[in-house]
């Protein structure tokens, strides 16, 4: 199974440090040059009446974004789903397909004039290129963010089943 990053809403304090860390990990701009235009985090804090947590790509096994992409710009790569830069044509199918709202399209006017615009589909890439792993996890002051390893999923489930069994024992008094 794929790896993915997820937040524990019981630990998230809604501070958005993760958003800035994501921008800094992927951008080429030094901190002092961040602007609204180049601030493009791949996870976004959501705040409702009761919940605060960042939402990002779940690295779906049968990813609807990849399914919907006419250019095969989104592909399974190792233990995650990755966007191939340069292949995206900006058709927005992935935006419509993703049930999490975890993929976004950045459209920039082209500087060369040869093309109309340059486009880039942005989503969590698990900071594959980064030493130290996902930047969001590293900076989260309350350790609300963590990476779930697909390879450990079976073990996690087994643990949960054991816990459930013990719960039944307690309830029945045996």
């Amino acid at each position: 199974m794929n790896n993915f990053v997820i937040a524990d809403p019981d630990k998230c304090i809604g501070c958005r440090t993760c958003e800035v860390a994501c921008v800094m990990a992927h951008g080429e701009h030094p901190l002092e040059q961040l602007t609204e235009e180049n601030f493009l985090p791949r996870l976004r804090l959501v705040r409702t009446a009761k919940i605060s947590m960042p939402i990002q790509c779940r690295q779906c096994e049968d990813a609807p974004c990849a399914q919907s992409c006419p250019e095969q710009a989104i592909l399974q790569n190792g233990h995650s789903v990755q966007v191939t830069a340069g292949k995206c044509i900006g058709c927005k199918s992935c935006l419509l397909a993703c049930p999490y709202g975890a993929i976004d399209l950045v459209v920039r006017p082209s500087s060369t004039g040869a093309k109309l615009n340059t486009v880039e589909a942005l989503k969590c890439d698990l900071c594959l290129e980064r030493t130290g792993g996902p930047a969001c996890i590293q900076v989260c002051p309350t350790k609300a963010l963590y990476q779930v390893e697909g390879s450990q999923m079976a073990g996690r489930l087994q643990q949960k089943r054991r816990k459930a069994a013990m719960g039944v024992v307690k309830v029945s008094g045996n």
């Binding site: 958003e19 800035v20 800094m24 901190l31 002092e32 040059q33 961040l34 602007t35 609204e36 601030f39």
Partner: peptide, 8 residues
Amino acid sequence: NCAALQVL
């Protein structure tokens, strides 16, 4: 006067 904080 801090870029990221101003953007947020």
